[in-house]
Each structure stands twice: as structure tokens, then as C-alpha cells.
């Protein structure tokens, strides 16, 4: 237990400092959200119609930012070797690394998501659901993103490769979460999409670490 507590503290502080940490992710997120009114035009009703969807897509993009270094640094400097020399299974180590990533990037972004959506013209009544979707979605993004980061270990321009691997896998949470938010805004039943988002996040937590550990072992041997 003490090992895992030590690891999660290390992973969160490392992820917090990685590529500027949550401030850079939030800045990127705010930047994308600001671009939209500039590109689409300032008409309020047009913006309001796409506000939740735009905030949601920007969230998926901002989640990509710090993925690249998630395993890469430990792989390059030899720490990944040493993390293996422990009774803790590598799968659990990967899970904790993803949790650290989520605490440092996903959770702060989830706080920013309702702000961005409301700034774009979404109804403030949507804010709690946007926050909940962003929290769950962030878990899915971190665990799916970890698979991409582990698979691109050792590749040149690994960050780009990570994004290409991961973006298609980000599609389901984007659809489920965006659908739930759109339905809620229109007064339609929204729990279905939300439940699917939760199921996808749970599946990512369950299977992601297995894939990450296999990819790490492969990269090391």
C-alpha cells in the first residue's frame, strides 16, 4: 500500500509538471474555446447551439497534450526498468500512472469545461452535467491515452503517433458525452448516453492497464 501511495504521489507531481501541467492544458483548452466564436461568428444563438459540443471536443484535444511523456520519460531515463523490479504488478503500476495523469490533467480540465461551455453560450443549468461528463470522460481519455502512449514508446515523434492512435478511440466517449449533453439541453432523456460514457470509462480502466503493461514489456525487451 505504501508503495502505491508513493507512486501516485510521484506520478501526480510528475504529471503536474509535465509539459507545463494543468495550466498549459487549461490554457490550450481556453484557446480552442476562444477560437470558435472567432471562426463561426458571434451570433449568440448559433454559438449556443454548438457550445456543449465544442467544449466537449476541445476537452478531448486538450487531454492529448501531456500524454506523450506519460511513459516516454520513464522509458528513456531507465525508471521504467526499476518500476518493474517490484512486487507490484506492472498492470497496477500503469493504472496508477493513468490516475496520476487524470488527477493532474483530467480533473483540472473538468473544472474548466463548464466555464468554457457557459462562456460559449450554453445554459448554466447544464453546468453540473458538463462537469460530471468531463470527469468521467477525463478518466476514459487518460486510460485510453495511456494505451497510445505506451504503444508509441521508442518511436520517433511519439507524441504525434500517440495522437493518431488515440483519437479514433476518443470517438465513443465524445459521442456518448456529447449526446447526453445535447439531449439534456433539449429536455430529452439523457441518462442513456451518460451511462454509456460511464461504461466506456469503466472498460478503459479495466482493460487499459493490461494493454499498457503489455506494450511497456514489449518496448523494454
Amino acid at each position: 500500500m505504501s508503495r502505491l501511495a508513493a507512486l501516485i504521489a510521484r506520478e501526480t507531481t510528475l504529471a503536474w509538471g509535465r509539459g507545463g501541467g494543468p495550466l498549459v492544458a487549461l490554457g490550450f483548452y481556453a484557446g480552442v474555446a476562444t477560437f470558435l466564436p472567432l471562426a463561426i461568428g458571434p451570433q449568440h444563438d448559433r454559438l449556443a447551439a454548438i457550445a456543449t459540443g465544442a467544449a466537449w471536443v476541445a476537452l478531448a484535444l486538450a487531454s492529448l497534450l501531456s500524454l506523450e511523456r506519460m511513459f516516454e520519460r520513464d522509458y528513456e531515463d531507465g525508471a521504467l526498468d526499476l518500476l518493474l523490479l517490484s512486487p507490484v504488478p506492472l498492470e497496477l503500476t500503469c493504472l496508477v500512472k493513468c490516475l496520476g495523469q487524470w488527477l493532474a490533467a483530467g480533473a483540472p480540465l473538468a473544472l474548466g469545461a463548464p466555464v468554457a461551455a457557459i462562456a460559449l453560450g450554453a445554459s448554466p443549468a447544464l453546468a453540473p452535467l458538463i462537469f460530471a461528463c468531463a470527469l468521467l470522460g477525463g478518466i476514459a481519455f487518460a486510460f485510453i491515452g495511456g494505451i497510445g502512449a505506451a504503444l508509441s514508446l521508442g518511436a520517433r515523434r511519439g507524441g504525434l503517433l500517440t495522437a493518431v492512435i488515440v483519437l479514433p478511440l476518443f470517438v465513443p466517449p465524445v459521442i456518448f458525452g456529447g449526446g447526453a449533453l445535447a439531449n439534456f439541453a433539449a429536455g430529452l432523456p439523457w441518462t442513456g448516453g451518460f451511462a454509456f460514457l460511464g461504461a466506456y470509462a469503466a472498460a478503459a480502466v479495466a482493460f487499459g492497464p493490461l494493454a499498457m503493461a503489455a506494450a511497456c514489456r514489449n518496448a523494454l525487451s
Binding site: D77, G78, A79, L80, L85
Partner: peptide
């Protein structure tokens, strides 16, 4: 314990 060239120190 393994101590190699890549020392794993951040």
C-alpha cells in the same frame, strides 16, 4: 537492485 547507465532519476 539494478544500477545502470540510465539511472531513472528525474
Amino acid at each position: 537492485h539494478l544500477v545502470g547507465h540510465a539511472d531513472g532519476l528525474k
